[in-house]
Design a protein around this nucleic acid. Structure first.
Lengths: 196, 196
DNA sequence: TAAAAAAACTAATATCCGTTAGTTTTACAG
DNA sequence: CTGTAAAACTAACGGATATTAGTTTTTTTA
């Protein structure tokens, strides 16, 4: 069969990772087979190994690409001079955008990380914990400056991150509601509540 | 080896399902092997088949047990004469309790349902969709009676259900915060927001 | 206590999976 | 064109998995 060229600026490895993200999301990491992945790429299974080292390497690439994007965005926000509420709103909106723009990858990072092998598993969890702690610190700062209610900051972070993650169920209703309305509504709900 | 008796009122099948829920949660449905499950039960793998039909039957039992509990609770709430906000708060608190009391089962129902086989997969998804629609109706009613802001009810349900689901990450912080505080904080956050 | 039923065990099978080995084809540099 | 390297292919292996078959042990029943 003819060699298949990937898009201009992307390597074939990138194409494989992209297809892997979609497949891992739909079938789950363990249920997804390298033969299925090969078919999606348009190649026989062993040919994949000319470009990648192993199946778990694919999972690592996906998880850490996403983790790094979130981490570096948080760093950018921290170095801003805005108020804490603005910072928090910024983070919420970024999560929503990531969920909509890089759906497969974010989904896999959220759901399949447990199948990472050591030491990647520990690295990933440490990076997550660090992210959450820095988010908590932001909320604590907002409480100190009286911008926020005297809530438990851990519960708030938990609530926000989980709510935003729920956008993975969004696809169903995509037709009825634009992403901008969605973003605004969710930000309002999480910041100001739903009671009049 | 001697026959192992389950707890007084539970059949051996119930014991197997219970152990399966814990195992499926930790390892994932596909990664969890029947040999591992057998070891947890204290038996050789083929012996399991004296009590169950197949591995997927276990997943079905777990998923539908949880789905039915949520559905019947919703029905109870619907038949109540309380205000809509009280009903919504009731549902949120029930979700939190389920998450804390039947952690393994709820986790598996939330994460592993995609490995259900037809027609169970379709049944499960239909039951979920129905639940969400009835929840949406409750919020729409609250908007109509001016109890709630004029938010998009789909976004609200999405936000609430996802936030509550996030309690699966709770175990980490259990030591620092009691479940009652958690419940109250989360209900407040979801109903009234975090801004002062 | 003897017969019947339930539930354990051992052994084995068929299937699928990730991956390797070895070979052939394609693409590109000179 | 020609030679070289990259990337495709076919064939196959070793290991794990769910499950079945057949047998033996344990428990219950009468």
């Amino acid at each position: 069969m003819a060699k298949i060229k990937p898009g201009k600026n992307a390597t074939k490895k990138d194409l494989i990772i992209e297809k892997a993200a979609a497949l891992f999301r739909i079938r789950g990491f363990n249920a997804a087979s390298m033969r299925e992945l090969a078919e999606a790429v348009g190649v026989e299974a062993p040919s994949l190994y000319n470009h990648i080292g192993s199946k778990s390497e694919l999972l690592q690439a996906i998880c850490f690409k996403i983790a790094d994007e979130f981490t570096s965005h948080l760093e950018r926000v921290e170095n801003t001079r805005s108020g804490n509420v603005v910072k928090i709103e910024n983070i919420i909106r970024f999560h929503i955008c990531m969920m909509l723009d890089e759906f497969d990858e974010v989904f896999v990072a959220n759901h399949e990380w447990k199948h990472l092998k050591e030491p990647y598993l520990s690295n990933f969890l440490n990076q997550r914990r660090s992210y959450e702690k820095r988010f908590v610190a932001l909320i604590e700062a907002g409480i100190k400056t009286k911008e926020l209610k005297n809530i438990n900051p851990y519960v708030a972070v938990l609530t926000i991150l989980s709510a935003v993650r729920g956008l993975e169920f969004w696809q169903r209703h995509k037709k009825n509601l634009g992403p901008q309305v969605l973003q605004d509504d969710m930000v309002t709900h999480l910041l100001k509540g739903m009671i009049k």
